[in-house]
């Protein structure tokens, strides 16, 4: 009897393992996240898919990823005391590996005192100014990029998980409106490149779906990591539109909407992109 149970259990375990291997979860790299029903993208793909093989390899190599310098700086800052309160992130949040898990996949979130959204970079700076009594980091500073990467990295492999609810819905709507609005002298909307023509060549560049599951990303063109907010500015400039400021309501709303479009995509910070 005991032997029978053992054998049955072994069989059960084996079949679970095998079915798991056969149905590898779609990762947005080799297999898309498939959407049913009312979603603008029937298939969701990470920008990874449209990168050159050597760019993908640079991202995948744990030691070669050029953003590592920033990740390490972020990790060091996590436990570094700062500000007049002489506090570190760690004192409230303990080990980032546990406490920050999944955080990036649901940001930006509605922040009640502001009556609007707050994104990850803004949240880090809010912690600094409010609780540590330290100076806010600048948007393009190595410190803010490093800390944001370090925090976002703790969600790697977890699916983007924006839930539209009563609180964030008005901001999601504004982000959506922005996404479909033509702008600039070239009169193009985000949707033109990233919904209608993703995967296709614009001169030598392959257009992506404009997902932000890998941000802050190490962009080869920048030679350093950058935020999705910086990327938005770049996109606007390319269509000869006056960009908004990083962290502006317009861009934070857009960030929420863009992350929602990528729901299901595994997080991959810091990604490497051309």
């Amino acid at each position: 009897m005991g032997r029978f149970i053992k054998m049955a259990l072994a069989g059960l375990v084996a079949s679970v393992l095998m079915s798991g291997a056969a149905m590898a979860a779609p990762d947005g790299k080799s297999a898309p996240i498939v959407n049913k029903g009312d979603h603008p993208l029937p298939e969701v793909w990470s920008g990874y898919k449209y990168s050159k093989v050597d760019t993908q390899a640079t991202q995948d190599d744990e030691f070669e990823n050029p953003a590592n310098l920033w990740t390490e700086q972020g990790e060091a800052l996590w436990s570094k005391k700062d500000g007049s309160e002489k506090k570190a992130c760690q004192e409230c949040h303990n080990d980032a590996k546990a406490s920050m898990k999944g955080v990036a996949t649901r940001y930006p979130v509605y922040y009640k005192p502001w009556k609007k959204l707050i994104n990850l970079e803004q949240r880090i700076n809010l912690c600094r100014t409010k609780f540590m009594k330290a100076k806010a980091y600048k948007w393009k500073s190595n410190e803010l990029l490093g800390l944001t990467i370090y925090v976002a990295k703790q969600s790697n492999g977890m699916p983007q998980a924006i839930e539209v609810n009563a609180q964030n819905k008005p901001f999601w709507e504004k982000g959506k409106e922005h996404y479909y609005k033509r702008r600039g002298q070239l009169d193009m909307a985000c949707a033109h490149c990233h919904e209608k023509y993703f995967g296709q060549k614009l001169r030598a560049n392959t257009l992506t779906q404009g997902q932000n599951n890998g941000f802050p990303t190490y962009r080869l063109k920048w030679g350093k990591p950058g935020s999705i907010q910086r990327r938005f500015k770049g996109c606007n400039k390319q269509v000869r539109a006056k960009p908004y400021k990083m962290g502006s309501d317009e861009y934070v709303n857009l960030e929420l909407y863009v992350r929602w479009r990528g729901n299901g995509l595994p997080n991959e910070t810091p990604s490497v992109r051309p």
């Binding site: 600039g184 002298q185 009169d187 539109a241």
Partner: peptide, 12 residues
């Protein structure tokens, strides 16, 4: 064309 456009960058 230069009319009915949105947020055109200053120099354009």
């Amino acid at each position: 064309r230069a009319d009915n456009l949105t947020r055109v960058m200053g120099k354009f």
